[in-house]
Amino acid sequence: MNHDPFHWGKPLDSVYGPYNTQIAQASNQRPENVRTNAEFPSMHTQQPMITGTSVIAVRYKDGVVMAADNMGAYGSLMKLDDVERIIRVGSETIVGISGDISDLQYLERILDDLAVEDSYDMEQDNLKASYVHEYLTRVLYNRRSKMDPLWNACIVAGFDEEGEPFMKYVDLLGVSYASPSLATGFGAHLAIPLLRQKADTMKDVEKLTKEDAVNLVKDCMKILFYRDARSLDKYTLCVVDKTTKNIEFHKDVKCEDMKWDFAKHITGYGLPQL
């Protein structure tokens, strides 16, 4: 097998002859640079490669708690075990990103450009979380409209124009929504029901303390690690807090008090394969 991903799924040259890139003027170059025999046809993202799993986030009375683990999976292979999937943008925003890791890194770059651009302005702290979210929504929606999406689902959290906590979702299609509890990927199925037990409405949120919210998110990360095969027990946990006007970053948090006794009864894990 040819291990170059670009050749996956392509007919073997030895059998079928070289790929005819002249078909439809196929080229991955900009039209002005088209060479006569471009090596590859023009390609759009059709599937993610290395992926990060769920991001989960919940509102509490003074802010937001968000968590995302540090794994980058290549199919079922744990390709990366130390990816940071919650990124800072300016001083008032964090973005948790799941989905394709290379697209994550691209987003990281353009959001950093955005923060740098903003810092050229005369005043400080202008880049609110709500602005970052809107920008991200524009970027993702425009890319899906080109049928060349950035394969990610993101949760943006931080402070809005009024200095109030902000938390909103946006994904590869440009769909965005806000809710007291948010999760991407598997988390939308596994974590959301748990989060909604404590934070279903803004009334619930008013009663939720920071400590409770952190524990709730930690519980969810544990459940996700139990059940989501593409997850890791090492994750980053962030707390946006308006009383301190600060965003705390806790890196390398471990899932604790896990019980794996049952594992020895599972065929292929504890029991020998039949």
Partner: peptide, 12 residues
Amino acid sequence: KMVFNRPLNVAK
């Protein structure tokens, strides 16, 4: 407003 949902900064 379109891109950032942000009223244009006056100095900018």
